[in-house]
C-alpha cells in the first residue's frame, strides 16, 4: 500500500516536472490548444454579458419612466421603449461608422477584434482577443482602439491573441511629445490600489519643455509600433530623484478598463501568410473600402 502511494507521488511529480520543462514550442502549442478550446465559451459568455447589460439598461429605463410618468398609458411606455431601442441602434451604428472611418485613415491593415477575456491570474495586465493567427494576427503587433494605442500582441494561438497592455510593467514603448518633439520611454506601472492603471514616461531631458496636457504619441523608433499613434496626455511632470531627467505621468488616451473592441495593426507579410493558408481571413478591414473583406459593401 505504501509502495503504491510512493509510485503515485512519483508519477505526479513526473507529470508536473514534464509540464514545467516542456520545450517552448510544445508549451505554446499546448497553451494555444487550451486557449482555442475555451475561446468559444469566452466569446459566448461575453455575448451573454452584453445582452444582459442591454436588458438591464432597458429595464432601468422603464423603471425611471414608471416613476416619472405613472399616469402614462402602456402604449406610451412601449413607444418610449422602442425609441430607446432605436437610440441604442443609432449609437451602435455611429460607433461602427467611427471604427470604419478610423480604419480608412490608418495606414496599416487593421484586424478588428473583440475583447473576450483578461489574464486569469491577475499577475499581468493583459486582455484576450477573439482573433488569432488564422485571421492574420502575429506576435509583437501594435493593438489600438479608436482612441489610441493600448498595447501589443504577445501569445497568439490559432483563434485568440493575448495583448500585453501599456499599463503592464513589462510593456515599454518609445514615445515622443507631439508639441516639443521630445523623446522618452513609456513604461507601465501596473495597477495601483483604487486608481486606474498608470503609465510613466522616463528619460525626458531635464531641460525639455514638458507641460501637463501635452499629447504623447509613439515615436516609431524600434520599429515595433507605427509612428504617431496617440498614447495619451501628460498629467503630471516631476524631476527624477537623481536630477538628471524628468518623468511624466501620462493619462492614457484609451480606457483600458472598458475595452470591448480593438484593432491589431497587421503587416502585409502577416496577411500574405493568411492568404496562403487554407483558412480564409475573417473580419480583416480593407483599407480602400473600409468594409470587411469578403463582405458586400
Amino acid at each position: 500500500m505504501k509502495d503504491r502511494r510512493w509510485i503515485a507521488l512519483c508519477a505526479i511529480g513526473l507529470v508536473v516536472l514534464a509540464m514545467l520543462n516542456l520545450p517552448d514550442a510544445a508549451s505554446r502549442r499546448v497553451k494555444g490548444a487550451v486557449r482555442d478550446g475555451i475561446s468559444p465559451l469566452q466569446a459566448g459568455l461575453r455575448g451573454g454579458v452584453r445582452e444582459m447589460r442591454e436588458i438591464v439598461r432597458y429595464v432601468r429605463g422603464l423603471g425611471d419612466l414608471a416613476l416619472e410618468n405613472r399616469a402614462l398609458s402602456e402604449e406610451i411606455v412601449y413607444l418610449r421603449g422602442e425609441t430607446r431601442m432605436a437610440q441604442e441602434l443609432a449609437r451602435d451604428n455611429q460607433m461602427l461608422r467611427d471604427l470604419l472611418g478610423f480604419a480608412q485613415r490608418f495606414p496599416n491593415k487593421l484586424i478588428s477584434c473583440e475583447v473576450i477575456g483578461r489574464d486569469s491570474t491577475g499577475w499581468w495586465q493583459t486582455v484576450r482577443l477573439d482573433k488569432g493567427a488564422a485571421a492574420g494576427v502575429a506576435e509583437g503587433r501594435a493593438v489600438l482602439t479608436t482612441d489610441g494605442l493600448i498595447g501589443r500582441t504577445t501569445a497568439v494561438s490559432t483563434r485568440t491573441a493575448d495583448v500585453l497592455l501599456l499599463s503592464d510593467p513589462s510593456c515599454k514603448v518609445s514615445v515622443r511629445l507631439k508639441r516639443s518633439g521630445e523623446f522618452g520611454l513609456a513604461e507601465g506601472q501596473g495597477a495601483r490600489p483604487g486608481q486606474p492603471p498608470a503609465v510613466r514616461v522616463d528619460y525626458l531631458l531635464k531641460t525639455a519643455d514638458v507641460q501637463p496636457g501635452d499629447e504623447v504619441v509613439t515615436s516609431g523608433l524600434g520599429g515595433l509600433f507605427p509612428k504617431g499613434l496617440p498614447v495619451g496626455r501628460v498629467a503630471e511632470v516631476v524631476m527624477d530623484a537623481s536630477g538628471l531627467y524628468q518623468t511624466a505621468w501620462i493619462e492614457l488616451a484609451a480606457d483600458l478598463g472598458k475595452l470591448e473592441y480593438a484593432f491589431v495593426a497587421a503587416t502585409e507579410k502577416d496577411l500574405a501568410a493568411v492568404r496562403a493558408a487554407p483558412v480564409p481571413p475573417d473580419a480583416v478591414l480593407d483599407d480602400e473600402s473600409g468594409y470587411l473583406e469578403g463582405e458586400d459593401p
Binding site: 509540464m19 497553451k31 475555451i38 499577475w123 504577445t154
Partner: peptide, 24 residues
C-alpha cells in the same frame, strides 16, 4: 490531483505564466 493539474493547465494557458506553475 487531476483537478489540480488540469486547473493549473487552464489557468496558465489563459495567462502569460509558464505551463505547470499554477499546477504546482
Amino acid at each position: 490531483v487531476a483537478a489540480a493539474i488540469l486547473a493549473g493547465l487552464v489557468e496558465d494557458a489563459l495567462s502569460l505564466a509558464p505551463l505547470g506553475y499554477s499546477s504546482c
